[in-house]
């Protein structure tokens, strides 16, 4: 038992160290590379120089947003995989991102300002959440219907997105594509995403045992004393809030929510008590590094971060899958 107790703690320390390293890396690299010493000095508030300005004003908000978004996506993925009892579930499977995207792209077509686009995305995400909840949980509700509702709505939103892209003036299409592929360049206020990250993590940690038991099937979970329906609704809203927060902050960043929970499971963690915090840290580090690369690979041009998460994540997970029996 000692081993199983100590091993997660070791990994948690490792993941925390990786998180800090990823944040510092994100602060050091960009259109101007900063020496590590200068970054650390700037962080603890010594000498008010240009470096301090770059670190505090420009990079820190974006890096912290990236970290929180990555953590939220990984959490939402793990929660939805538990809710739907489906390893293919990812944060976008219930169509929340689709609803947000349709609303955001519409706002862009009408030439609204960035803040209005975010606001519109939030409205679209909430509308999609409400719609999926009303259809998926009606008449007793079952998770297969919830999943199908989400998938069908996603397909519908996908068609609307294509329609909007076709109708949009050519000058706007590029910005829209960036939004669709995930883009953290507008992320300047990490407060709300961090708040939601901590709340969602707290919920998951609190319900960790129940989430494990939910994987056994609804009947078994009920017979063990779990209030299955309230738990499912709680997971649904926690995952929805996490997804909506990310989509509003950074558009639809793919692959983090799907692969990070599996990555942590392949390390040998199945219980949600460890899976969720490890996934949040790993997802945060991963997206922070991916965003740093997105800013630097072809600097001064920036790449959509979603392209990098997929390009990095897919080979990594394939490699891990091929090693496990």
């Amino acid at each position: 038992m000692n081993l199983t107790l100590h091993l997660p703690a070791t990994w948690l320390v490792l993941a925390a160290a990786a998180s800090i390293a990823s944040v510092v890396t994100g602060l050091a690299f960009g259109s101007v590379d900063l020496p590590l010493g200068d970054v650390l000095r700037a962080l603890i508030g010594k000498d008010a120089t240009l470096v301090t300005d770059i670190v505090w004003q420009l990079r820190l908000p974006r890096v912290l947003s990236a970290f929180a978004c990555g953590g939220l996506l990984a959490l939402a993925g793990a929660l939805l995989q538990a809710l739907l009892r489906n390893p293919l579930a990812d944060p976008y499977i219930l169509g929340i991102s689709g609803g947000a995207a349709v609303a955001a792209l519409s706002a862009m077509i009408f030439g609204l300002a960035a803040a209005a686009v975010s606001f519109s995305a939030l409205g679209g995400a909430l509308a999609a959440v409400g719609l999926v909840f009303a259809l998926g949980f009606s008449r007793g509700g079952n998770m297969v219907r919830l999943l199908l509702t989400g998938v069908v709505l996603s397909a519908g939103f996908g068609a609307l997105i294509s329609l909007l892209l076709t109708l949009a003036p050519e000058t706007q299409v590029r910005g829209m594509l960036f939004w669709l592929m995930g883009d953290l360049s507008q992320a300047q206020a990490p407060g709300p995403v961090w708040g939601i990250l901590l709340a969602a993590l707290g919920f998951g940690w609190w319900q960790a045992k129940s989430l494990d038991i939910l994987g056994l099937g609804e009947l078994k979970a009920r017979s063990l004393g779990i209030a299955v329906r309230p738990l499912q609704i709680g997971i649904f809203f926690a995952a929805s809030a996490a997804t909506a927060a990310v989509v509003v902050e950074a558009g639809t960043i793919g692959f983090v929510g799907l692969i990070v929970p599996h990555f942590v499971r392949l390390l040998g963690f199945s219980g949600h008590r460890w899976l969720l915090p490890l996934a949040a840290l790993a997802g945060g580090s991963f997206l922070t590094l991916a965003d740093t690369l997105a800013r630097t690979v072809v600097a001064p041009q920036q790449l959509p971060v979603g392209v990098l998460t997929a390009l990095l994540g897919v080979p990594l997970l394939l490699f891990l899958l091929s090693r496990k029996p």
């Binding site: 995989q81 538990a82 009892r85 489906n86 390893p87 494990d212 994987g215 056994l216 099937g217 609804e218 009947l219 078994k220 017979s223 063990l224 004393g225 499971r265 199945s270 219980g271």
Partner: peptide
């Protein structure tokens, strides 16, 4: 109730990796 009555349902399939 779960301490009084336990159920072995028919196999529902499971999502358990541990």
């Amino acid at each position: 109730l779960a301490r009084q009555i336990g159920v072995l349902p028919q196999d529902e399939g499971h999502e358990f990796w541990g």
